[in-house]
Design a protein around this nucleic acid. Structure first.
Length: 572
DNA sequence: AAGGGACGCGCG
DNA sequence: AAAGCGCGCGTCCCTT
């Protein structure tokens, strides 16, 4: 890259409907403006070289058609997602200019309308995206974001966050395009094994029918409705099962012949309705499961998903995740990501010591804090979620003595939340301010005429918010770590050579080299030609260390992975 | 008929 | 086994 090469290229629609590329110098001044038709865009992007960072309104608006043409973008700045972070970040000292442009607060284009699959459709879509896609609006918003960044209290961290979030925007589109390799035969075999053969339309599988008969026998009601919660509850009451809900954990407390078949019935009905044959046909056709990922869809910065229940794939069905012939899966998750992140944020070397090695909970036991691994897990989760009662709540004080720095951090986050304040993740994503109704409740409780009920309501909602902000800083920073990890993995895999005869079925780009195939909070799946599997696994490991260093520098803490290379994602 | 809330349960 | 955080989705049921 030569010195005067533009660093940023802003993409947007021109007034005449063509696509405009505005190249900016490093100082933000505009250097050159090119107008192209949509078809030319696909050749222009790779020609610009990998050093360029593309600035666009919304990855879900611009990237799918480029990817469909085989164009992979190296780096981007996603104005929509970055706007959301910057407008709310406590690190930004003056967000007024950003907040004056709420048109950038919209959801992803996917949530509005299905993504265009071709550049022609992109031309035809007009206002399909929820945020502005004009070149002038993009340039103005980008200028506002750069100004906000320059005045920020921790611009370095925010820059990392915006880069990671934007990488996530690109990755989400790529994950959808590549898809998760899915073996419908294995899926069908699991269903048949548990439910019986696939029934005719409108009928229930044999195994469920049998269980329904047994449940109705035990209820003494041959026509009892088992799928209506109120009706089922009344039927249970008639045979002396005085449960207050029909949830599994409560029913399991009762000793009655109806319980066992009913719990089994509910389990199998769940499998059938959530991930049965209908789901298979809708979501896992042609050998791929293609969920729609929603980066930044959770306030904490975690991803959400829309359609197909991508983030709820039952472990039962994991064996159906199966590599293409000649390919392998690298399945990796971070052990106890959230408590490790907490240790690093708090600079708690005692907790970091306990975390050394593969199992943080074992380290807590070894430190003599609690007696068993189960207790350690309960106590740690309770500390991060704000448990006050039950087994885990009881153990939290022991944690407070052993790891005062970590516990002070989360306790303080809870206190700030209860007081209506704002907490912020390590890289600068802030929790939303309390709603006006929340503030009304708090204010009402302080009034002279407040009743005891007003006060207890206010106390309860304050505690609720405290538990939210307590968890927010940990969950949100863990999401940042995971984004950094995944972005690093993506960068490393992009450098892999294409395997000419790879025989993969993930499209023109991903069918020929190792690529990300799935992401779930602290877990990734890479799909790789067998010859690249070892190198891909090494990339995944190296990226974890890269993410650690990027976020926490020299703080002595490791993020060990549970990683395996296998043909399918079933239990190792 | 469509929409929204409650419930229950899958995932981290 | 839930508890204590964050989600999405299918089903039932009631309102508009």
């Amino acid at each position: 890259m030569t010195l005067d090469e533009p660093v940023w290229s802003v993409l947007g629609r021109g007034p005449d409907g063509t696509v405009v590329v505005a190249d900016l110098n490093a100082d933000g001044t505009e250097r050159r403006r090119t107008s192209v038709d949509s078809a030319a865009l696909a050749s222009l992007v790779p020609a610009a070289g990998p050093a360029r960072r593309w600035v666009w309104s919304d990855a879900t608006r611009w990237y799918p058609p480029l990817l469909a043409d085989g164009v992979v973008v190296a780096r981007c700045h996603d104005l929509r997602l970055c706007h959301t972070i910057l407008r709310g970040s406590a690190f930004v000292t003056d967000a007024a200019a950003l907040r004056a442009h709420p048109e950038w607060d919209g959801p992803a284009a996917d949530a509005v309308t299905p993504a265009a699959e071709t550049l022609f459709e992109l031309d035809e879509r007009g206002d399909a995206s929820s945020v502005p896609d004009g070149i002038d609006e993009a340039l103005a918003e980008f200028a506002r974001q750069r100004a906000a960044l320059e005045g920020a209290t921790a611009p370095g961290r925010l820059r990392l966050l915006l880069a990671a979030e934007s990488a996530g925007a690109v990755i989400a589109v790529e994950l959808h395009a590549a898809g998760l390799p899915w073996d419908a035969g294995v899926h069908d075999a699991i269903l048949v094994d548990l439910l019986g053969p696939r029934p005719a339309a409108g009928r229930l599988p044999a195994r469920i029918e049998e269980l329904a008969v047994r449940v109705r026998d035990a209820l003494g009601a041959p026509a009892a409705s088992l799928d209506s919660q109120p009706k089922l509850l009344r039927a249970l009451h008639r045979v002396g099962v005085l449960a207050t809900s029909t949830s599994r954990w409560e029913l399991a407390q009762y000793d009655h012949p109806v319980i066992a078949p009913l719990l089994e019935y509910k389990k199998l009905m769940r499998l059938l309705s959530a991930n049965g044959w209908a789901w298979m046909e809708e979501w896992a056709a042609e050998g791929r499961f293609r969920p729609v990922y929603v980066p930044g869809g959770v306030v904490t910065g975690r991803w959400a998903s829309s359609g197909g229940g991508a983030l709820q794939l039952p472990r039962q069905l994991r064996p159906a995740v199966r590599a293409d012939p000649g390919w392998l899966l690298i399945i990796a998750d971070v052990a106890q990501l959230e408590p490790r992140v907490l240790a690093a944020m708090a600079g708690d070397t005692a907790l970091a010591d306990a975390a050394r090695g593969q199992d943080l909970y074992a380290g807590v036991v070894a430190g003599g804090v609690v007696a068993t691994r189960q207790e350690a897990k309960g106590a740690i989760l309770g500390a991060m979620y704000g448990a006050t009662t039950g087994d885990s709540g009881r153990l939290v004080p022991a944690l407070r003595r052993a790891y005062p720095r970590a516990m002070t951090l989360v306790d303080e986050a809870a206190r700030i939340g209860e007081d209506g304040g704002i907490v912020t993740t390590w890289l600068g994503r802030s929790a939303p301010a309390p709603s006006s109704s929340w503030r009304d409740v708090q204010r009402g409780a302080g009034a002279i005429e407040a009743t005891a009920a007003d006060e207890s309501r206010a106390r309860r909602s304050a505690r609720d918010r405290g538990r939210f902000t307590r968890n927010f800083i940990v969950q949100g920073t863990a999401a940042e770590w995971a984004l950094a990890w995944m972005a690093d993995v993506r960068g490393r895999l992009a450098a892999f050579d294409a395997v000419e005869d790879a025989g993969g079925r993930s499209g023109p780009v991903f069918g020929r080299r190792a690529h990300l195939a799935f992401f779930l909070h602290d877990e990734i799946v890479v799909h790789a030609p067998a010859a690249q599997a070892e190198a891909a696994a090494e990339a995944v490991r190296a990226a974890a260390d890269g993410a650690r260093r990027l976020l926490f520098g020299d703080f002595p803490l490791d993020f060990p992975l549970d990683l395996r290379i296998a043909e399918d994602a079933g239990k190792a």
